[in-house]
């Protein structure tokens, strides 16, 4: 029997790795992939708690997270395609069109 804390620790490790990827990688595509990693680590937590507390709401939330992630990726990649059409770069530190 695997205790709940193991699953949470796995979620924490994946979350930290994904957050590091979002913060320090230079390629926009890899930043988006790290974002997926973050969402997935949260999903692990939701489903682990749902299993251990015998409650379906965690699984429902995981389904919603997956749906929202699909929408997010579609929009993000659309923005990326439009961006690259205007300025041919994928480096995060060179995308300064909006003076951010």
């Amino acid at each position: 029997m695997v205790p709940l804390s193991w699953y949470i620790v796995l979620g924490v490790i994946l979350f930290v790795i994904g957050a590091a990827g979002v913060l320090i990688r230079r390629n926009v595509l890899v930043v988006l992939m790290s974002l997926e990693l973050l969402l997935n680590s949260v999903n692990i937590n939701f489903i682990a708690f749902a299993h251990f507390h015998d409650d379906f709401r965690g699984r429902i939330f995981a389904i919603f997270i997956i749906a929202i992630t699909a929408a997010e990726v579609a929009i993000a990649l659309g923005i990326l395609v439009a961006l690259v059409r205007n300025k041919a770069t994928l480096k995060v530190d060179e995308i300064t069109i909006m003076r951010g």
Partner: peptide, 12 residues
């Protein structure tokens, strides 16, 4: 939201 994302991706 999924429908909006679909349309938005096409427009973008």
């Amino acid at each position: 939201i999924l429908l909006v994302a679909l349309i938005g991706a096409i427009v973008l």
